[in-house]
Design a protein around this nucleic acid. Structure first.
Length: 432
DNA sequence: CTTAGGATGACGTAGAGC
DNA sequence: GCTCTACGTCATCCTAAG
């Protein structure tokens, strides 16, 4: 906790006083709220002595730090202000269900340049999306389930300042049902398995032993098994996202099948010394390209000459692939991604697709401070779009061990997305 | 023999939707 | 009230390569 607060730019002294006064159970919002309240009552240059400031706030720290306090100070009202998920989860519309007369008004502070696009899991613990929204200019998140774009579910929230009118989907439209996506499975798909969509693609897959147990259970019957067996098999199939590949045979998705479902080119994550496990991990953590591309499609007419992209937590480059498939030229792409495996994947895709622009790698978002950003921005000449989906490990429902919310070890990197977005804005808006 | 990395299964719960 | 889902983690075992 102390580390997290320090990362936000608080001094050790501030933190220890706050932790003492708020008690051991206090959340990060309560703590920052306390520090904020105490400090806002003083003069800015008193409570922000320069040598206390963390390096990442260099350049714009005084303003930024105060702004951070102010955002933290705004409290959630859990009764009335909790963000609710839409049902159906189609955000501001999907290709098959275009909503009439969509409009939304963004707060002045949210209007670009640059455009930004933030993504994370929709079913995060309560209050997480309220906090995220609060930090990102109070923009209402757009919750979309990718099952409206492809044959697999993926419930995600997107906070962005893009227009929502005149969007268009990638063509060709991907198959919308499992049966269309996997024609060969039709022959083996039993009548009693009603699934038309797969569940969310995750980082772990069902084991070979499990599929063997399922086959053994089914082979004891000639025709359809009794309903009790049907139910238990279906439960496992849903839990592990298994598909039918032979008589009584189920199997987890292959990596290339996941690539297809998620909208990536086949073999996108293959080769170059990347293990199967790593492929599953990277794919499970990725964007669904068609969904993201639909949202980003409005940029095409705005930037006929191409865009400069800052891609945080790039992963296997979902945003880059989406923009490329939309036919939006990539001039300069600054990509920040911790995993070398993923950086290699993006680099290799970049070379294979003969990109004319520059791809610049960074490995650590936390090391991207004001100074570095100024260098990069003066080199590329400003960013048109900032994309990022910060780590979800501590938000995701499947995590039994450390579902700690936004304050979790990895998921707290969201605050770096906010920090960098804010830094870029102030550098770009500063008079030359 | 040692080591690295894949494979396996156990692990619990919040919160949405009905 | 009930059912269902979820960008996951860990210790341990197994296997192949060195």
């Amino acid at each position: 906790m102390l580390l997290l607060l320090a990362k936000m730019g608080y001094t050790v002294e501030e933190c220890s006083i706050a932790m003492e006064r708020c008690g051991p159970e206090a959340s990060v919002v309560e703590l920052t709220d306390f520090i904020c309240a105490a400090q806002l009552s003083r003069e800015a240059d008193v409570y922000l002595p320069d040598d206390d400031l963390k390096p990442r706030y260099n350049g714009v720290c005084k303003i930024k730090k105060r702004k951070f306090f102010e955002i933290c100070k705004k409290k959630n009202d859990p009764e009335t202000e909790t963000i609710r998920l839409p049902n159906p989860m189609i955000g501001f519309g999907v290709p098959s269900l275009q909503l009439e007369s969509i409009s939304r008004s963004l707060p002045d502070s949210a209007i670009g340049p640059p455009f930004f696009y933030y993504e994370n899991v929709a079913l995060a613990p309560k209050g997480v999306w309220d906090t995220i929204s609060r930090f990102l200019n109070d923009i209402e998140p757009e919750f979309v389930d990718s099952k409206y774009f492809c044959a697999t579910a993926r419930k995600r929230g997107y906070v962005h300042n893009l227009p929502v009118q005149n969007r268009f989907p990638l063509v060709p439209l991907p198959p919308l049902t499992v049966q269309q996506a996997f024609p060969l499975s039709r022959k083996w798909w039993p009548q009693w398995d009603p699934r038309e969509k797969l569940n969310c693609i995750q980082t772990a897959i069902g084991s070979a032993k499990l599929t063997e147990r399922i086959r053994n259970a089914l082979e004891r019957f000639d025709g359809d098994p009794p309903t009790s067996v049907q139910k238990s098999v279906l439960d496992e199939c849903r839990k592990w996202n298994l598909v039918w590949v032979g008589r009584n045979k189920v199997a987890p998705l292959e990596p290339d099948e996941m690539e297809m479902l998620l909208g990536f080119p086949k073999n996108h994550t293959r080769g170059g010394g990347i293990s199967r496990t790593d492929r599953y991990k990277s794919l499970g953590n990725s964007f669904q390209v068609d969904t993201v591309a639909y949202h980003l499609s409005v940029l095409k007419d705005m930037f006929p000459d191409g865009i400069n992209l800052l891609s945080l937590f790039s992963g296997i480059g979902g945003a880059e692939v989406a923009l490329h498939r939309l036919g939006i030229k990539l001039k300069n792409v600054v990509s920040v991604e911790k995993s070398k495996v993923n950086r290699d994947i993006v680099r290799s895709w970049w070379e294979q697709t003969n990109q004319a622009g520059n791809l610049i790698d960074f490995d650590d978002v936390q090391a991207l401070d004001g100074e570095r950003l100024e260098e990069v921005i003066s080199y590329v000449g400003g960013f048109d779009l900032i994309v990022g989906g910060s780590p979800c490990n501590n938000l995701a429902g499947s995590n039994r061990v450390s579902r700690d919310g936004l304050e979790g070890k990895e998921s707290s990197l969201f605050y770096d997305y906010f920090r960098i977005l804010d830094l870029v804005k102030s550098i770009m808006h500063r008079p030359a």
